[in-house]
Design a protein around this nucleic acid. Structure first.
Lengths: 348, 348
DNA sequence: CTGAAAGCGCTAACAG
DNA sequence: CTGTTAGCGCTTTCAG
């Protein structure tokens, strides 16, 4: 590895001058600058960012904290869980913004963190990342609180933080209204007996979507039946099981609102296995609009979340925080109900 | 940020001693070690890996070079391309292995590299990554050659390198045989007029799969019809278009072998839009077994590639190279034909 | 415009 | 067992 020292020697100048020339400082004569840049190129010089970071105290790296949990919970080992699919699309957006900047992305795995007994904060500190984006982490996560209470700039995806300091922000979508809207759509189609398959309780979005569901029923003056609210754990198989049971016991149900597409797919399979036609006998709505939603048959009616944008905006917000720009620390994106073929008028 | 210097001051020892104590060297008395570790904990000390890397010349970071190209080529901006889906699953495997080690993963985007006019090698050098995994990059990529010819440890996914130095390796699957096998399956079902929708030419896998296709036809003594080999560019829409044309012109075709699942799905839609029943009128086989394959109707018959394993093994190989372990630099995994509902006996 | 010197936080001989 | 010293590659005062 060639260093500025070697360049300095060859150019017969001091390392200071080399540093300045290469960094575009104005106080270097054109002649020496030219000489130096040429030599640098010839020697295939590449600046050592580690060294630069050490002295400037800026690593220009952003941490990305994602969970792999669930990866072999529902699916074997080579397939994704619902969460994974969601996170992947978000990541794509994060990457999209980050690649417009000088920052690089470093990937941390929350699972390995627990193996190694290191908190997320430690992971980040060690690498001196300047900020971190957290996604796919449960609200009861052991290390979550620590990191939001630290001074590390931090943006959370779908995890609202009530009264956080100015270094913390979050990006989420309008879950309550979207859920409400989805359920209202069902009501509009004449459905009255509408069940809900929710995700696990350790996701804020579950609570929000449930809230929207309850609101919509109330507005439609439909009595809430608590036993029709199921826990599908954000998994296809769990959703399948609980839906199967539910439908067997309660033939009066004509529609189900699911808090994720994968669960909707699980529910749909359960319905089909029971012999129900979707949507004629049972309407189903999902949430997320993952790639899969368009490909299953019937095509899912679902709440489209712009996951790319969520990631993009999260990354942007993080850089704003890092660079001390005073911008909103909360972003709530709007969703959009996309009508597919899994919903239709109630025929019962 | 608290440093070992501050710990040293508080513990009234030299920084050397602190360093040794914290790094588990044996030449420190138990008493001082205990004192030091306690102080470190109390002060919330976190070692600066940047500084450590600088002196030890080991960054303990691995670069991950993936392409985003195609992301808005076929699909809007918030959806994945086929390549993306594949790469994502591979990434999951890479992450799986890496999290068992001391290394961290740093993400480079090949597109941004071109924006910034930096070669992959530069990107890696600057961050002093100790090795890099390359995936989803085309064989004609401008910077590809440079990086494999550098001394940087490097593992490629699905890009065989003929006579590379000992620092370069690759992981791929048995594409020729798998393709051969897939086509033979069609032959076994009585098909004789078998077309192929291939990916673009800048992927080695396209060439291999084509080779397998040709081999199988030859073995079955079926004449090769070059005009039945189409370029689907690894995209669903392109595959749709070319298949549509092909089927219109050549009603004698009863089966299509596609070099990727997404293209198979595109082909399937084309067939259905023409009024063909799949599989009765037209059998279709895909390649990859991406998550989608199981969810489309009819469920795709496809060649299962263990993408997680590909990533896992690639990461493992890279670490072996970095740590100078003499292990094979070539890994060719076996695939498995998974029969779905998109293939059946030839009825024509 | 240029250079000398100090130092970022840490590790690693070398001496004691 | 512990401290002194030097230095990883770079940036940044401060003097000239």
């Amino acid at each position: 590895m060639v260093t500025i020292k070697e360049i300095a020697a060859k150019a017969k100048v001091s390392i200071t001058t080399v540093s300045r020339a290469l960094n575009g400082h104005t106080d270097v004569s054109e002649r020496t600058r030219k000489k130096i840049t040429e030599i640098a190129r010839d020697m295939k010089y590449s600046p050592n960012k580690l060294a630069r970071s050490l002295v400037s105290n800026k690593s220009y790296t952003i941490g990305l904290l994602v969970s792999n949990s669930g990866i072999d919970e529902e699916i074997v080992k080579n397939k994704f869980s619902s969460e994974m699919m969601f996170v992947m699309e978000v990541m794509s957006g994060i990457n999209g913004y980050v690649s417009e900047t000088n920052y690089d992305l470093i990937l941390f795995n929350t699972d390995s963190s627990e193996q190694k007994n290191k908190s997320y904060t430690e992971l980040c500190m060690e690498r001196r990342v300047q900020g971190v984006i957290v996604s796919g982490v449960k609200t009861n996560d052991v290390y979550l609180k620590e990191i939001t209470e630290s001074n590390l700039p931090c943006v959370l995806i779908d995890i609202p933080v009530p009264n956080a300091n100015n270094n913390v922000g979050y990006v989420t979508t309008n879950n309550i209204d979207s859920a409400n809207n989805a359920v209202r759509h069902l009501v509009g189609l004449g459905h009255k007996n509408i069940a809900m398959v929710n995700g696990h309780e350790y996701a804020t979005v579950s609570q929000m979507r449930l809230k929207g569901y309850k609101e919509a029923l109330k507005q439609a003056k439909i009595a809430l039946n608590e036993s029709w609210i199921l826990d599908g754990a954000f998994g296809e198989r769990t959703a399948y099981k609980v839906t199967f049971e539910l439908l067997k016991k309660n033939p009066e149900i004509t529609a189900i609102f699911c808090a994720s597409d994968l669960m909707a797919i699980g529910a749909m399979k359960a319905a089909q296995d029971i012999g129900y036609n979707v949507p004629q006998r049972l309407s189903i709505i999902g949430f997320d609009d993952i790639l899969l939603a368009t490909y299953v048959v019937p095509k899912l009616t679902t709440v489209f979340q712009n996951k790319y944008k969520m990631g993009y905006r999260a990354a942007k917000m993080l850089v704003d925080i890092i660079e001390k720009k005073e911008k909103p620390r909360t972003i709530i994106l709007e969703n959009e109900l996309r009508i597919g073929d899994s919903t239709s008028a109630c025929l019962l």
